[in-house]
Simulated scan of single mutants.
Amino acid sequence: MTNDDLRPLLLAVDDTPENLALIVELLRADYRLRVATNGVDALRLAAGPVRPDLILLDVMMPGLSGFEVCERLQADPATAGIPVIFLTALSSVEDERHGLQVGAVDYVTKPISPPILEARVKSHLRLKASADYLRDKAVFLESEVSRRTRELSTIQDVTIQVMASLAETRDNETGHHIRRTQHYVRVLAESLVAHPRFSAALTPEAIDLLFKSAPLHDIGKVGIPDHILLKPGRLDASEWEIMKTHAAVGREAIEHAEQALGIRVDFLRYAKEIAYGHHEKWDGTGYPQGLAGDAIPVSARLMALADVYDALISKRVYKNAMPHAVAAGLIVEGRGSHFDPDVVDAFLLRQVEFERIAAAYKDD
């Protein structure tokens, strides 16, 4: 590429060959030039594969007037950013006002004054270069922010999965429980977005955060002794009391992580709600706080059903896996006692999807 190729490209549009010759003679030392003698050709060249950096446009031309050409240039996203300078014999204030209104950046009257034309062209090319730089920089920054956001989200997802897997590997019976419950929660949340009791809480952003944080619901199990967590049978009363502490242990672990970060993180708020509250029951007989009804966070109510359903359909040392129909029946029995009635209704509407999720993430 030669230095000449790097010079700005101008498009001069005038139906008078003498005027075009004069423009070319004045500007060819510093710029590359293309010419058109009518509006149709001007629009074609302006939208071509090599677009001009600036257009010098006559107003009075046969066919399309310069004003009409400028309006069409402005209406096309491909050419709207090309600055237009009118070069015209129309010298009234009203003509100049109209030219600027249709999108021109400047209005120069004929006969052409070489110093004025050269100065105006140079000034508007500098302005365009600055605007292009700022636009390109904005696009780059937006792309960089998007890239960093995706990177951060990926790091969060990986961190969550590692933490959740740590708890899962200590409980050798859970298999793909974490993945299944994560999807169950999303299905329930999406079913309730239009419900007046849930619409404010279950925004699209909130549902994404719920899905992201759901795998941490049993993170507190890392604090339960092996002889209890891995006991091949039912727990006695004292062991059960220790097992129930995993809800508080989980919340405290997430709080410690949040304190280490030094900032509040939205998805960790949901993670704490779920870890601490998913064993609460609608009638107040759950643990650890004995919350009832709407005092239980929405996120915890969704996980409560997801967690119990998955436990029912999964094989354990002390029980066989239940068929979906039996598990669904027990969920219905818990409507209004164990579970929020509306969450149970959402489950019944989407239970086919629960079955699909269970099949897709079936334990080995």
Rank of each mutant, 00 (worst) to 15 (best):
281 K>F: 09
269 R>A: 09
279 H>Q: 06
243 M>R: 08
289 Q>A: 15
231 K>F: 05
249 V>T: 08
253 A>E: 07
227 H>A: 11
277 G>C: 11
220 G>E: 01
291 L>A: 03
261 L>N: 10
239 E>S: 10
272 K>D: 03
247 A>I: 10
250 G>W: 00
294 D>L: 09
276 Y>L: 14
221 K>W: 00
238 S>Y: 12
290 G>Q: 10
223 G>T: 00
271 A>E: 02
267 F>R: 15
241 E>C: 12
277 G>N: 09
220 G>I: 00
234 R>K: 03
230 L>P: 01
270 Y>C: 11
289 Q>Y: 13
250 G>N: 01
226 D>E: 02
257 A>I: 13
289 Q>M: 14
236 D>N: 12
252 E>Y: 11
275 A>Q: 01
238 S>P: 04
254 I>Q: 00
247 A>D: 06
259 Q>H: 06
261 L>G: 14
243 M>F: 13
241 E>H: 11
232 P>E: 13
254 I>R: 04
222 V>P: 00
251 R>C: 04
236 D>G: 05
248 A>E: 10
272 K>S: 07
234 R>S: 04
286 G>W: 14
223 G>A: 06
254 I>C: 01
301 R>F: 00
260 A>L: 15
292 A>F: 02
250 G>V: 06
302 L>R: 07
237 A>F: 10
282 W>N: 13
277 G>V: 08
267 F>L: 15
260 A>C: 14
278 H>D: 09
265 V>N: 04
225 P>E: 07
232 P>T: 11
249 V>D: 00
258 E>T: 14
285 T>V: 09
299 S>Y: 12
235 L>Q: 05
237 A>Y: 12
260 A>Q: 13
278 H>M: 03
302 L>M: 07
236 D>P: 00
240 W>I: 10
232 P>M: 12
287 Y>S: 14
223 G>Y: 05
255 E>C: 08
284 G>K: 12
293 G>N: 00
269 R>W: 11
230 L>A: 06
226 D>M: 02
230 L>V: 04
279 H>V: 04
238 S>G: 02
267 F>W: 14
262 G>R: 15
222 V>I: 10
239 E>N: 06
240 W>A: 10
256 H>N: 10
229 L>T: 02
257 A>R: 06
288 P>H: 05
224 I>N: 03
281 K>P: 01
228 I>P: 01
255 E>Y: 14
238 S>R: 09
275 A>R: 01
270 Y>F: 15
221 K>R: 07
292 A>H: 00
257 A>L: 13
230 L>Y: 00
253 A>D: 06
227 H>Y: 08
302 L>S: 08
283 D>Y: 14
254 I>W: 02
225 P>N: 05
273 E>Q: 14
292 A>L: 05
244 K>F: 01
283 D>V: 11
234 R>G: 00
273 E>I: 10
276 Y>M: 12
